[in-house]
Simulated scan of single mutants.
Amino acid sequence: MLDQQKITILYYRLSNEDALDGKSNSIQNQKEFLTRYAAEHGYTNLKILVDDGYTGTNFDRPGVQEGFALVKQGLVGCWLVKDLSRFGRDYLTVGQYTDIIFPSYDVHFIAVNDGVDSERGDSDGFAAIRNLFNEWYPRDTSKKVRVVFRQKGTSGKHLGKPPYGYRTDPADKDHWIIDEDAAPVVKRIFDLAIDGKGPEQIARILEQDKVLTTKALYAKQSENHPDPKKRKKMPERPYHWIAQSVAGILERMEYTGCTCNFKTYSKS
């Protein structure tokens, strides 16, 4: 007899990397698979939680966090996932939840395709090994992506978005071209600096002459974008330049014609 007073969570997750595998891991496929499994095994008090576009290498995901909150309130009786990799790809954290936290709250955890059932145990004894492989996959992907970026950056191609004054060439996303709306402002800022004006003085001159700030110009340029989601909101003070923005423009080496890559680094 199933305790239908408690919630059965059907959890789906899909990251950008997983999407490359095709339809097998799609949200729709996971939904159909787990809904059918729940119906066949008598689970009726269902709650669907979805993290679409979130990596499994950490648990900072809104769907899974909502589920954990319900678990800690003692409201969850069962947690269903298609396989362990959908739950997470950090084998230490996955093991902590499946082997310690879920049992302490009397939560029945099932990873259907992997044959993992906390009430019956690991059917083939390979759950721990699967967790290691699930973590190895994003690590290997990360290394490959970093190699590609390193090769692209050292070849002289730009990494990241172009600074104010430039825009991406529609014919070649790796090439920058002059933004005719912003370039005169950049040139004027440098001319004023050469004349002895400081960043604060330059900012006040631009504001007095009603020159659109960086954000305001981008908002104006996006007004007629066919996709409403990509239209930016005009700031409340479209002409209010600050000294920090002016100094940032004067300090950028890209305005000298250099290609500057690898200025920041994030540990994998």
Rank of each mutant, 00 (worst) to 15 (best):
G95H: 02
I101Y: 01
D52G: 02
T98I: 15
R89A: 06
L46W: 10
A111H: 06
T55K: 04
Y54H: 00
V116N: 03
L70Q: 04
K72M: 11
V71A: 14
Y105Q: 12
Y91G: 13
D52I: 00
L46V: 07
D114I: 11
V50D: 03
E66N: 09
Y54Q: 07
G88N: 12
K47C: 15
D90H: 09
H108I: 05
N45Q: 11
L92T: 14
L80Q: 00
T93P: 06
Y43D: 14
F109E: 04
D106G: 11
N58W: 08
V112H: 02
N113K: 12
G74M: 02
I48M: 12
G63L: 04
P103N: 07
L46M: 09
A111E: 07
G67H: 05
V50R: 05
C78N: 13
Y43I: 08
Q96H: 14
P103W: 10
L70Y: 08
T44W: 03
K82R: 14
Q96F: 13
N113E: 13
T44M: 09
C78D: 00
V64S: 15
D52V: 04
L92N: 10
A111D: 07
T44F: 07
R86T: 03
S104K: 14
V50M: 01
Q65C: 11
R61Q: 10
I101E: 12
H108W: 05
Y54A: 01
G77S: 04
F59P: 06
K47A: 13
L92A: 15
P62F: 05
Y54I: 00
F87V: 05
F87H: 02
I100W: 10
F87S: 01
A111W: 09
T44N: 11
R61N: 00
S85V: 10
Q73C: 06
Y97R: 08
S104N: 10
I101D: 01
Y91D: 04
F109G: 07
V76Q: 09
D60N: 12
G115R: 06
K82V: 03
Y43T: 03
V81T: 06
N113L: 07
N45G: 06
F109C: 04
G56F: 05
F59I: 05
Q96C: 13
F102A: 06
G115I: 01
I48T: 15
F87T: 11
L46D: 09
S104F: 13
D60R: 09
C78V: 13
W79R: 12
A69Y: 05
R89G: 01
G95Q: 11
F68H: 07
N45A: 05
